[in-house]
């Protein structure tokens, strides 16, 4: 009889489609619900955040330039791959949060369903939020939503559903994002990164950082090449306020933190917050 050695997993960051360690070389201990050691996670630094923004910016042109239909297909593909790895995610949720089997299943189901729901919106959001405008002249005038650019997100603490709920609406509409995973539960976020890396999502569209929100978020909030800021996961009101102030310098679109029921049916607002409207006059009769 042979005894196998444990295969310990090294949780790294997810930046530009790669899984690099933190530039700083730091890591921090992640415990399970009972307080016993689970794994080490990378503790990202401001330079990792900078690299992630570069990757997101580089990916923006290609991702936003795809047809909405194609983006929907890719987001749906994430749901497919996630569905195929549901056992792994259920086990991770049970370990991380101490959920029972039924509860863990509920969250994984909800995460998959959430992705499918947003995937369906990819090629429909423009019809709902865009418009053909009546003008007093012989012109077409219409308004269409466009992605705003690179969005920095602080994810809420629900390790899987929380992350999916904030990332999916942002990327579905053509934005790219840098997301800081839940500080106490970062491992599932990196596993979700593996799902994204294997589901036709171009590298750099989603970049996942793990580490201290208080350390990384201010650099993203003040970054002049970031166009939107989602503060859903910021619990500390003072930090949220200072991040909002930092974001004002280049007029980022900011979504303020609030109490969220992650299991509740989603609305369009997470998508529309990070859309901007382009209105075009089109002369007729040429």
């Amino acid at each position: 009889m042979s005894t196998r050695l444990d295969v310990k997993k090294t949780y790294k960051l997810y930046i530009g489609g790669q899984f690099p360690r933190s530039e700083s070389g730091r890591s921090y201990v992640v415990n399970d619900a009972k307080g016993t050691f689970l794994a080490n996670a990378s503790q990202a630094s401001r330079k990792d955040a900078r690299d992630a923004v570069l990757a997101a910016r580089a990916a923006f042109g290609g991702w936003s330039g795809r047809t909405a239909y194609n983006r929907g297909q890719v987001v749906y593909r994430i749901a497919e791959v996630l569905e195929g790895r549901r056992d792994q995610f259920e086990a991770e949720l049970r370990a991380a949060e101490g959920l029972n089997a039924a509860k863990a299943r509920t969250y994984v189901d909800a995460a998959v369903d959430r992705l499918v729901w947003y995937a369906g919106w990819a090629d429909k959001i423009a019809q709902v939020t865009g418009s053909a405008n009546a003008v007093a002249g012989p012109y077409f005038n219409h308004s269409a939503p466009e992605p705003t650019g690179v969005v920095a997100i602080v994810a809420p603490s629900g390790p899987l559903l929380g992350l999916v709920s904030v990332v999916a609406p942002v990327i579905t509409t053509g934005n790219t994002c840098v997301v800081i995973a839940s500080e106490p539960h970062p491992l599932t976020a990196i596993t979700l990164g593996e799902v994204m890396a294997t589901s036709d999502l171009p590298g750099g569209v989603v970049n996942v950082l793990t580490g201290s929100v208080a350390e990384i978020a201010p650099w993203l909030a003040s970054h002049m090449d970031v166009n939107g800021l989602d503060l859903t996961g910021v619990a500390d009101p003072d930090l949220a306020r200072s991040l909002e102030e930092a974001a004002a310098d280049n007029l980022k679109r900011v979504r303020r933190p609030g109490v969220e029921d992650l299991l509740a049916a989603p609305a369009l607002d997470r998508m529309t917050t990070f859309l901007e409207t382009k209105t075009v006059w089109h002369p007729m009769g040429i």
Binding site: R50, R57, W219, H223, M224, D225, A246, D249
Partner: peptide
């Protein structure tokens, strides 16, 4: 300025 700049500027 103490904050990252971007190519837009």
């Amino acid at each position: 300025t103490g904050r990252y700049s971007g190519p837009d500027y």
